[in-house]
């Protein structure tokens, strides 16, 4: 089984690395770049939601703020793209520590935690929307610069494909290490019950904050990549729709494993390009798919398939 898993993993990695050699369509590669970036966002959200049990609505804010922060630090501090990204991720981490400390010190849980983080997220969105002199308000910002990596300018779709794929792989690796470490076990205890964490000697506040900051840090890096791939920034990055989209990806893919949200992210990113609907019909179709998945496969697509394979393997 273990060998099979490893083999499958390598086969998938080779296939994904070789894909641009066979697939010349820019549209397909573009969809995949967006899928990998959305996948990073969903995986990092699941660290806070699926593994630690905290339904955060701050994820879109972390994602959007980082885009703006990267741009502003490049413009005003004269740093390069990568330094700008690191600064933006650090800035988002500081914000997350403030928001997380307020929420977790007051022991906000479930609905209350979701509402308070949503309020902070809206505060951030309204600031971005109305601070015209810095963010250019509703018009947003055009981003002309492209990142440089090892002397190459990441400009065409194929280089973005590799950059986003590597970023997703690193995200999966980091999250997997976290989840399978002692930290991940603390997250699990907290997910079940704060009191259980307390009686097992776990500093519940500290580990909730650790998961929140780690998740938002990755969301920030994703936001910076996303904005510079897209070439523009607008307040919609921080919208509630964006937050709900991330929740949908995780519920669709599954939340019980590190990898599962990527499945949801790929499906929800690719679907609008595969099936053409008008905007109104699209919302209805998506909503229906989501409701159906939750009713029929509460473990998500990946979770259900994995459970099915386990059952078959056992029998």
């Amino acid at each position: 089984m273990r060998f099979q898993n490893r083999f499958l993993f390598f086969a998938l990695a080779v296939a994904l690395l070789a894909l641009p050699l066979g697939v010349k369509s820019d549209v397909v590669l573009t969809i995949l770049v967006f899928s990998w970036l959305q996948g990073m966002l969903a995986v990092s959200f699941n660290l806070i939601f699926g593994f630690t049990g905290q339904l955060t609505m701050f994820h879109a804010a972390a994602f959007g703020i980082a885009g703006y922060a990267t741009h502003l630090s490049m413009q005003h501090l004269g740093v390069g793209y990568w330094t700008g990204t690191v600064l933006a991720a650090l800035f988002v981490s500081v914000l997350s520590i403030i928001v997380g400390t307020i929420c977790f010190r007051f022991r906000l849980k479930e609905f209350y935690f979701a509402i308070v983080t949503l309020a902070f997220s809206e505060m951030a969105r309204l600031t971005v929307l109305n601070w015209n002199s810095v963010t250019n308000g509703t018009l947003g910002i055009n981003l002309q610069e492209k990142p440089w990596l090892f002397g190459f300018k990441v400009n065409d779709t194929v280089s973005w494909y590799y950059l986003s794929l590597v970023a997703l792989a690193v995200t999966l690796l980091v999250c997997s290490r976290l989840v399978h470490s002692w930290m991940g076990r603390c997250f699990s205890a907290i997910r079940l019950n704060d009191e259980l964490g307390d009686t097992l000697g776990i500093n519940v506040f500290r580990y909730k904050l650790a998961a929140f900051v780690a998740g938002n840090f990755i969301a920030a890096v994703t936001g910076s990549l996303y904005a510079y791939y897209l070439g523009s920034l607008e307040p919609g990055f921080l919208s509630i729709d964006q937050s709900l989209g991330i929740v949908a990806m995780v519920l669709l893919g599954g939340r019980s494993s590190v990898f599962a949200p990527v499945v949801g992210a790929v499906l929800l990113t690719a679907l609008p390009h595969l099936i053409h609907f008008s905007a109104e019909v699209r919302s209805i179709v998506y909503g229906s798919i989501l409701i159906l998945t939750i009713l029929v496969m509460p473990q998500g697509i990946y979770g259900s398939i994995a459970a099915l394979l386990r059952k078959r393997h056992a029998s």
Binding site: R177, S181, W182, R185, C186, A189, L200, G201
Partner: peptide
């Protein structure tokens, strides 16, 4: 294993961070 938090903390202290890179230490 979930309940092993205190045991690991007593044994390794801050060196627990190293288990993120080398899980075999735990």
């Amino acid at each position: 294993h979930i309940a092993a938090h205190l045991e690991l903390k007593r044994r390794l202290g801050w060196r627990r961070l190293a288990t993120l890179v080398r899980p075999d230490l735990a």
